[in-house]
Design a protein around this nucleic acid. Sequence first.
DNA 1: CAGGTGACTCTTT
DNA 2: GAAAGAGCCACCT
Length: 115
Amino acid sequence: VPGTFAKVVALVRRIPRGRVATYGQLAKMVRTTPRVVGFAMRSPGEFPWHRVLGQRRRGIGHITIGDERSAVRQRQLLEREGVKFSLRGDIDLAVFGWTTSSAGGRQSARRGARS
DNA sequence: CAGGTGACTCTTT
DNA sequence: GAAAGAGCCACCT
């Protein structure tokens, strides 16, 4: 049976290009805590870990990883997918946030997101 | 089996 | 508003 980390990683794999999710958001989805989600990001294997951000406040995400090198890499990967950062390094979750309705998998309107 | 450890978040100074 | 503190829980010794 898949452990919590595996479930988190599986969830992260479903985040489409150009969209992002927060640790708290994913934590709710798998019924765990944000820290556990963060820890799960250290899992080996190929998955879009860079699409997971911390939540600065309601509707605003930002890169929270401590390691500077990784943070820079994460930002580059996201920008390459069309995710826009504010001057402060914030990301508008209303535009780039990943919203999923389990059934249809219908995404929210992608305003500004590049395909 | 108990305890330490975080890619976080929320509340309270 | 920035800064600090508590809570959180799966995994690993």
